[in-house]
Design a protein around this nucleic acid. Sequence first.
DNA 1: AGTAACAAATGAACGGCGTTCAATGCCATC
DNA 2: GATGGCATTGAACGCCGTTCATTTGTTACT
Lengths: 219, 219
Amino acid sequence: MNQSSNCDPLSMGRRSEHTRRQLSDLILQAAEQLIVDHGLAGLSARAIARDIGYTPGTIYLLFANLDDVILHVNARTLDALYAYIKAAIAKERSPLRQLMQAARAYVEFARTHPNRWRACFEHRLPVDVAGPDDIDVRIQQLIDLIMAPLADVSQTEGAALDAAAQALWSGVHGICILTLTHKLQMVGGREIEHLTDNLVRHYLVGLAASDASTDSMGP
Amino acid sequence: MNQSSNCDPLSMGRRSEHTRRQLSDLILQAAEQLIVDHGLAGLSARAIARDIGYTPGTIYLLFANLDDVILHVNARTLDALYAYIKAAIAKERSPLRQLMQAARAYVEFARTHPNRWRACFEHRLPVDVAGPDDIDVRIQQLIDLIMAPLADVSQTEGAALDAAAQALWSGVHGICILTLTHKLQMVGGREIEHLTDNLVRHYLVGLAASDASTDSMGP
DNA sequence: AGTAACAAATGAACGGCGTTCAATGCCATC
DNA sequence: GATGGCATTGAACGCCGTTCATTTGTTACT
């Protein structure tokens, strides 16, 4: 009656040379490699299938559609980005340096993995699903990473702190986007790191100055 | 021998109900409308042809390919954006207010024409043509718009001024991107305008403060 | 051993895409 | 009227995402 035997339920498949989990990983790895090599535009179900030695239909046994695959790849990328920034922050002690290093880590990740990074933000879902999916949650987690040091540096809290974190993070993001897509003419030796430092430093100075003059009335 | 007659060379066409120029405009208008209605993903040669009453092949008599069409639509969009920001700046006198209004105009344009605006930055060319095309030139013109007031406010010039303009403009751009793509959780009543004001104001304060402490030694 | 049951995987098919190009149709001219 | 020649067509190619009836291989039970 019951299917309990000495073989685990995961290997119940008939022709399966791979567990569902293994196959799922294969697909995601192949998809990620295609994105790395040729960008989001280079991703196709047929290309994935070719690379893993299956047919396109197999992908649809494990994922709802290609968007679903992309979402999973992007989730992995954002996890890696999260870990990278977290490590960068952990290396520093002073909140100010933590913020600077976080920004630099973000930029460096985007520059090291341009196609994976861009896929996270270029991928446009169909009109549906306004609800915050996995991706949006992960992006919020990225922003949360800088909340603590930003609170220290700016002496703000609550909504003002949230706003500052979002503004700062968006700003760095904008620099990455425009630089990676070559929309900014980088004349001379000015590099993306300089722009990032410029933005973060001046923003933080201004933020601290504004707080000092409005929030705290002084001791 | 020569084709000179009482009819202008533009109407030499045989079955043509439209001048090449008219037909080109028809195509661009239809393409723009498709982008407005359904985003870049909603654009296709067949859809354009259907809307203007021609066949897909006709498009290729006037444009090299669909990318070429998109490039032209984007150029128009950036021209409109340029005019919009320029008008916003012209309404103000003080450089600081000019910068704030320029940022707000940018945001407002992106919010009013989200699909057209996004098309300018989502469109990814094939690996070729690194050379600065029309689009990049127009983006540089946008940045140039804020150079004069920024020079006033910041008391900087040369490379430092360029860097400040790029950093500030990229920051506002990043806010637009993340907001329009709903990657930022906009909790409470915080809106994109508040974020923009926040970024611009604090950045400018910090920029001016840094200049005062480094560049000019003070009278 | 034989067989029934069943899941894994296939591959053909559908409609749509960008793009090309020989063939067609229309017009101005001779 | 015949002719030359360009504007336009529409069929075709090879790609795409996605679906699903069919096949195939494995297990479980007789």
